[in-house]
């Protein structure tokens, strides 16, 4: 356990993150329901971004098909319910979605773990589209374009006798928050482990990594499996929040959204995709509510990101922070 002194020093060292965690923990008390639900979505996209960024930021592979894996995870919850009519506790589906997504990643990784650059991107785009067309066209099995309803599942085996809004904003919100922190911790361990460092070595110099005896394809394959599995897990968390799964979430422009939120937050930073996921979702929802030309606005913001802040919001924050502290130092000296 962390001692009280240790805790205080952590808070002093990372005041912004402490503030964010406190806000996230207390949000349902004072924020309107709509906003709380959007933050819940944002947390799920944060998990997706973490999983996606294990490939982009740490392995140097850009996937344009992660929306397909996200949808796959969501359908791993809605399809069993649709066909058996029995609603188990959510953990059963999370485990199921995680395992099946990992298996999917293992299978697809056989084809794409040996490819890099644009070929990896397009291969994943095609996998995503195959998943999309499967959910769309096999309407007898999947519900087709109408999608499939997802009932409110019990959590940890417990049913809650509350209305749906309260369930989403107070009970399921904390469930997602807990899942988010667990995933955050898992990814922190992964990227700082020997495995994570090896991935970064492969990313930086494939040939040199190979010369030191690293089996680069195996490492890429494992990273790919982890990424797909956690993306599927995020999709499964998303399904009961959304209450509905439809094939459109597998469409490739949603993969573009995942790429975008990761770059928005800053893909060179561990926490980047999380910040990106939260900001992107809130921003997108409010612009859609405010104007019909939200895609135009997103496009323009994307241009600004690419040309002026390529290191994302986290990178921008760090450079502003550095400049402020630097000024303080120089005025003293």
């Amino acid at each position: 356990m962390i001692s009280r002194k240790g805790l205080i020093s952590i808070i002093r060292k990372y005041p912004i993150y402490t503030l964010i965690i406190i806000i996230l923990l207390t949000l349902p008390i004072y924020a309107p329901s709509f906003f709380v639900i959007q933050i819940a979505y944002g947390l799920i996209f944060g998990i997706t971004g973490l999983a996606f960024n294990l490939l982009l930021g740490y392995t140097g592979l850009l996937s344009f098909g992660h929306a397909g894996f996200f949808a796959f995870g969501a359908y791993m919850m809605s399809l069993p319910i649709r066909h058996t009519g029995i609603v188990h506790t959510l953990e059963v589906y999370l485990a199921f979605a995680f395992i099946t997504s990992a298996a999917l990643g293992a299978l697809l990784g056989l084809i794409c773990a040996r490819r890099t650059r644009i070929f990896f991107s397009i291969l994943n785009l095609s996998f995503g589209l195959i998943i999309y067309s499967f959910f769309l066209k096999f309407w007898g099995f999947t519900g087709g374009a109408d999608g499939t309803h997802v009932p409110t599942p019990p959590l940890l085996g417990m049913k809650f006798a509350v209305d749906k809004e309260y369930w989403m904003t107070h009970i399921y919100y904390y469930y997602i928050l807990a899942a988010f922190f667990i995933c955050l911790a898992i990814f922190w361990v992964i990227v700082n482990s020997n495995f994570g460092k090896t991935l970064q070595a492969i990313r930086d110099n494939e040939i040199r990594a190979q010369f030191t005896g690293i089996r680069i394809y195996r490492y890429r394959h494992i990273a790919y499996i982890i990424s797909v599995a956690f993306t599927g897990l995020a999709g499964c968390l998303w399904a009961p929040l959304n209450g509905h799964t439809a094939p459109e979430i597998a469409w490739w422009t949603y993969s573009g959204d995942i790429v975008m939120l990761t770059i928005l937050g800053g893909y060179q930073y561990f926490i980047g995709p999380v910040i990106g996921g939260l900001v992107f979702n809130v921003f997108k929802i409010y612009t859609i509510g405010y104007t019909v030309y939200w895609m135009l606005l997103l496009g323009i913001i994307l241009l600004i990101l690419i040309f002026f802040i390529p290191r994302g919001l986290v990178g921008l924050g760090i450079s502003i922070y550095n400049r402020l502290t630097h000024k303080k130092g120089s005025s003293k000296g």
């Binding site: 850009l62 975008m260 770059i263 895609m295 135009l296 496009g299 994307l302 241009l303």
Partner: peptide
């Protein structure tokens, strides 16, 4: 980097889509 090239053309796609609507 490729991710920026792809993102840029993705941004152009989004902008053109909405300009058509406009």
């Amino acid at each position: 980097l490729e991710e920026f090239q792809l993102l840029l053309t993705f941004a152009i796609l989004l902008i053109i889509e909405d300009l058509e609507l406009m």
